[in-house]
Design a protein around this nucleic acid. Structure first.
Lengths: 215, 215
DNA sequence: CCGTTTTGTTACCATTATGTGATATATTGT
DNA sequence: ACAATATATCACATAATGGTAACAAAACGG
């Protein structure tokens, strides 16, 4: 269950947001100023903060430092929209302009939560970055094209890192239980992976057994 | 930052209003009569006009025509309140009766600005601008006609940018869970989108999976 | 009602992915 | 070191996949 912290001085709007988030399964806590927000953050861990940029007394931006490590969606009136906010749409942060549709807000909450989680799911090893959700691989910032089977096999190895996987097991998981073919097929694909990723050492051969991704 | 034009013959009150608006983040300019107001409107674009109905020389109402397209809050003494003013609370206009609490004024300013604003969240990528609210697309300033299904699909891709979306998932979200058709339908629509938007590279094929909008 | 637009399907083609056999190289146990 | 076994590498036939155009059906608008 995701915990969302809402910081909004207009209690009516705050309650409305809270109600809507609840309807789609998020728990939330409402604060009406920065002081309450800091107290709330000290007490609990939140998965997302919905922060009104224009709070009485202090700008929402002044509160940013309080919530490092937690994704933020800034709520702003259009007039307050600036380039700083506009640059936020790609990271673990986003902004939304008042007045907004509740469905729009809910959609954004979902996107940011997912995006943030995804960021923590990148697998990195020796210059290679694997994004399983994106199904992309980069080596030294350069995109590497893997075929579907190659990516699936890589994915299985990552999920079972540091574990020796038999050819049979790899076939079962990466090809499917109903695959009827030679175990040698695994060998060839492992070679292709090693070559493309430069992982000659990282993907180790476990003689008589199969292979192991060593991190 | 919202620009507010204040038209108020009593400079003391005008300054007070200005001060309060500033405190909550609005920039404002003060005029003491209709002539100054017209000059100000000619020079700058304002997001809201605060107009004293009882100005020396001419009624504030006579100035309405000068400010088409800009929301107005009429400031009036209680004795001048009439039915015409009372009918204003719903549109891009409102009224407030002197004497008023500053917080009340600020609240009304916020409300009118919000109500008047159209929340347009634009997605831009390589010369293409997508307005999801208006369901319009422009390429290099030129309007592109997308069919409803095309736009919905595009919208889904945008909402899930940088995520490999399976054909099944796309069908489910853009067509509906109950759509019973071929996954190939997605392919064809993707091609049509690519062609219309010139997004041959931006909409990437993820072999064996589906597609991904890469930003 | 009919003409137009939108939408989904089909068939065909080019391209890519994949599994396997042949052969070379490496590893292992004695 | 040597034989036995296992793994790596290469090349290629074939299967799978996606792109494309043309068409059919459905929805739309007057």
């Amino acid at each position: 269950m995701d915990q969302i912290l809402i910081v909004e001085d207009d209690v009516n709007i705050g309650n409305l947001i809270q109600l809507n988030l609840e309807l789609v399964g998020y728990k939330s806590h409402l604060c009406v100023n920065g002081i309450e927000m800091k107290q709330a953050l000290a007490k609990n861990k939140y998965d997302l903060i919905l922060l009104d940029v224009m709070l009485p007394g202090q700008s929402g931006f002044e509160l940013i430092n309080s919530c490092e490590g937690t994704p933020v969606i800034y709520v702003t009136a259009k007039g307050e929209l600036n380039d700083k906010l506009k640059g936020l749409t790609l990271g673990a942060e986003d902004y939304i302009v008042k007045p907004f549709e509740m469905m729009e807000l809910v959609a954004r909450v979902k996107v940011v939560l997912r995006r943030f989680r995804k960021d923590t799911q990148l697998f990195q090893l020796d210059g290679v970055t694997v994004d399983q959700e994106n199904r992309t691989v980069e080596k030294d910032g350069q995109r590497i094209d893997l075929t579907p089977r190659e990516f699936t096999l890589l994915s299985v190895l990552i999920d079972n890192r540091n574990i020796a996987m038999s050819r049979e097991k790899l076939l079962e998981v990466a090809w499917g239980w109903d695959f009827e073919g030679e175990t040698k097929t695994v060998d060839v694909h492992i070679q292709r992976l090693r070559k493309k990723l430069g992982w000659e050492k990282q993907i180790q051969t476990v003689t008589k057994i199969g292979y192991r991704l060593e991190v």
